[in-house]
């Protein structure tokens, strides 16, 4: 069925974390990545034959290394994201 998908809508990901712009930045990165790697056109919601809905569930930043003066030196950023890709013609979940 994926061969029949020609276009994809990717609305701005919802973000329950309050980091400013995180959902938007991730959505823009996904747009670019789709355009770089896949044959699907990224189009606005109404006209697409498939839709990728995403939600940032959490963003966690931890210090995992410090300088000898106890200043943060190495930070780890983890993102938890849920996505659902649906064929809008059949309502079938593709991924």
């Amino acid at each position: 069925h994926r061969e029949q998908v020609r276009s994809i809508a990717v609305p701005v990901f919802a973000c329950s974390d309050d980091r400013p712009g995180l959902g938007l930045r991730l959505t823009e990165a996904v747009h670019k990545e789709i355009q770089r790697r896949l044959p699907y056109r990224v189009v606005p919601g109404g006209s697409a034959d498939s839709r990728l809905i995403g939600r940032v569930l959490g963003a966690y930043k931890d210090v995992i290394g410090e300088t000898r003066n106890d200043d943060p030196r190495t930070l780890q950023l983890q993102l938890a994201v849920e996505v659902t890709w649906t064929d809008m013609r059949t309502q079938k979940v593709l991924a």
């Binding site: 930045r25 990165a29 996904v30 990545e33 896949l38 990728l52 995403g54 993102l79």
Partner: peptide, 22 residues
């Protein structure tokens, strides 16, 4: 910089998401 590092994490997550669409 911090901003560049977090953008790298975002770009990596975007690649993982698009892996699902292949």
């Amino acid at each position: 910089s911090m901003a560049t590092a977090s953008q790298q994490v975002i770009d990596r997550m975007a690649r993982q998401i698009v892996d699902l669409l292949e």
